Amino acid sequence: MTRPFRFGVVAPLMTDVVTWRDRARRIADSGYSTLLVPDFPLTQPAPGPMLATVAASTDLHVGTWVYASPLRPAWMTAWEAHSLSLLTDGRFEMGIGTGRPGIEDELRDKKLPVVPPGERLTQVRETVEALRDLDGPDLHTPVAMAVLGPKARALAAEVADTVTFALGDQPRAEVERLACDFRTAGNVELALAVPVIGDAVAPHMAPPDTDPAALRAADALTVLPDDPAAAIEEIQRRREEIGFSYFVFGADFAETFAPLVAELAGR
């Protein structure tokens, strides 16, 4: 099954609130499907209020990109996700993963337990199970999982509606192997976060020392050309060859890629 294209934007609050709200409205007007916020505690407002604000002022879907499972008890994350799904009339998508590299230091700073990756994956499962219990039979909050290793991929195949891979400089052929099982199954949406456009790196989507030239040399899928026409061709190739249909960009590129979204969204 070939899924139609849709496009999301990771839009952390890095300006004043009025400017951020205006940007969210422009993103909605440009045809993007989803506004997403990262889970970086204390560097911006909490994800729930941010996303509720956007959902109340636009028709966008909203989501976390992504909750870090060890930062909260599973029931708390599930409660917030269910509440957002209910209050947005089903326009909330819960993105969740085991945490970005270096999260152990953040956990220590916040006096939280530093649990090994396997336990963090168990926390993801417990969160999704709690969310399904809260949703009940009449609501289904979509779950997007950020994965890489085999255990995480197996869990995502079991519980996720959307799967994205926690990628860096992995070459195209390696990513195609990661996606193969999901593409064969045909019932999971494959999402690709692209933090690098041309030589620019989106905040909160890649490490600050990311080298765009090295990514291009490795044929990594975490980079796209900054020319919308060339990016359109490459995005179509990535769906045809690998199965990616949901593409996520940083907010700084939303206006540049608005013609791309107009051309491909829903096709």
Rank of each mutant, 00 (worst) to 15 (best):
A144C: 15
S83Y: 11
D252L: 02
M14K: 05
P47W: 04
L215D: 13
A56D: 01
E126K: 06
G90W: 08
P228F: 12
V114F: 10
E119R: 02
R183F: 09
V248L: 02
A217Y: 14
L42E: 09
G149R: 14
T210S: 14
F40R: 11
L167C: 05
D227I: 09
M76Q: 11
V201R: 10
E119S: 06
W20I: 09
A157T: 10
A251R: 00
L139K: 15
P70W: 10
V248H: 00
T164E: 12
G136H: 14
A258E: 02
S245R: 05
F253W: 00
D252H: 02
V54N: 01
T88R: 01
V10F: 00
G8K: 01
T77A: 12
V248D: 07
G118K: 05
V223S: 12
A258I: 03
G63I: 00
M145N: 09
G63Q: 01
P259Q: 04
Q123T: 07
V143R: 12
T127S: 12
A74Q: 01
A202F: 13
E106C: 01
R216Y: 15
L221G: 00
A202V: 13
T122E: 04
A254R: 07
T77K: 05
V37C: 13
D109W: 15
E263A: 08
L131Y: 06
F40N: 15
L167V: 07
G250A: 04
A206D: 14
L260T: 05
D16C: 06
D227K: 07
V9H: 06
M145T: 11
D29S: 02
M50C: 03
T210V: 15
A254H: 01
F182P: 05
V223W: 08
I27H: 01
P150I: 09
V188T: 15
T19A: 12
D161L: 02
F244I: 05
G198F: 09
V261K: 03
T77W: 02
I103D: 10
I232N: 11
F182Y: 08
A154K: 12
T2Y: 00
M1E: 00
I103P: 01
A24I: 03
A230W: 08
R21L: 08
Q123A: 06
R25H: 04
A130L: 13
M1L: 01
T77N: 02
A202R: 11
A265N: 06
R132W: 13
A81H: 12
S33N: 04
R23Y: 01
D39S: 10
T53V: 04
L13W: 06
A220Y: 08
P225M: 11
R6P: 09
V248I: 10
M205H: 15
L215H: 14
P116A: 15
Q123R: 05
P228R: 10
A74I: 04
D219K: 13
A130E: 15
T222C: 12
F92A: 03
P228N: 12
S30E: 01
R172M: 07
E241D: 14
R100Y: 11
A130Q: 14
V124W: 07
E158F: 04
R177Y: 04
L224Q: 08
V10Y: 05
R23N: 06
A157C: 07
E241A: 14
W79T: 12
A24T: 03
P228Q: 15
A218K: 12
G63H: 01
L139P: 10
E104A: 04
R238P: 02
A146P: 03
V124D: 04
V194E: 11
A265L: 02
P70H: 11
P49V: 00
E263S: 06
P228C: 11
G31T: 01
A152D: 07
E240I: 09
